[in-house]
Simulated scan of single mutants.
Amino acid sequence: MPITLNDEAAQVAFGEMLGQALAGRGQVHLIGDLGAGKTTLARGILRAYGHVGAVKSPTYTLVEPYETASARIFHFDLYRLGDPEELEFMGARDMLGSDALCLIEWPSRGAGWLPVPDLEVRLQLVSDGRRVSGTAYSQQGRAVLARMPACLSHKEDEC
């Protein structure tokens, strides 16, 4: 069941809840059009781990690492990725294979190279804010959805 988030504060709060449910690990694909709020959601997730600084989309650097007391987080933005093989050259395999949390915006740009995520979060612009929905692709992703109080779907792998 999709959830509507009425404003930026609601998006950040939802991101914090999601961050707590993720428990500092896994791969999350953030999907949505430009301006849908992927980076805002990432900011909320990072706040769940105590990050208080700015969070900007790493559009030009492709990845921004964050170290907190409780988690290592890699925030990817693949919008400007020329070829999925570039991920290999920048060492993404090590980042994705580590015991870290990886947030990936524009994962379609890495298609064929990126592994299947634990969780896919879709953001859609709607007249009254943003609509967010999620789909789990692993046992870990299903456990995250189960821990989210706002996920009321009857399906175990979607919210």
Rank of each mutant, 00 (worst) to 15 (best):
M1D: 10
P2Y: 02
P2W: 04
T4E: 10
L5K: 02
L5Y: 00
L5D: 00
N6W: 01
N6G: 03
N6V: 07
D7P: 01
D7I: 01
D7Y: 00
E8N: 01
E8A: 05
A10I: 01
V12R: 07
V12C: 03
A13E: 02
G15F: 01
M17S: 13
M17Y: 01
L18T: 02
A21S: 04
L22D: 03
L22T: 02
G24P: 06
G24L: 03
R25W: 05
G26Y: 00
G26E: 01
Q27H: 11
L30P: 06
L30T: 06
I31F: 00
G32P: 03
L34F: 07
L34R: 10
G35E: 05
A36T: 02
A36F: 01
G37L: 05
L41W: 05
A42H: 04
G44E: 00
R47D: 06
G50D: 09
H51F: 15
V52C: 15
V55Q: 08
V55M: 14
V55P: 08
S57I: 14
Y60T: 09
E64W: 09
Y66R: 11
E67C: 12
S70H: 12
A71F: 05
R72G: 11
F74V: 07
F74D: 11
F74C: 10
F74S: 14
D77M: 13
L81K: 12
P84I: 11
E86T: 08
E86P: 03
L87D: 07
M90G: 02
M90Q: 03
G91L: 07
A92V: 08
R93I: 14
M95L: 14
S98Q: 13
D99F: 08
L101Q: 06
C102Y: 06
I104F: 00
W106M: 10
W106A: 06
R109E: 08
R109W: 04
G110T: 07
G112F: 06
L114S: 13
P115W: 13
V116I: 11
P117S: 10
P117R: 08
R122D: 12
L123V: 02
L125P: 08
S127C: 09
S127Y: 12
S127W: 10
R130F: 02
R130S: 08
V132M: 04
T135K: 15
A136G: 08
Y137H: 14
Y137P: 03
Q139R: 14
Q139C: 09
R142F: 05
A143V: 11
V144D: 12
R147H: 06
M148I: 09
M148H: 03
M148V: 08
S153V: 11
D157N: 13
C159A: 12
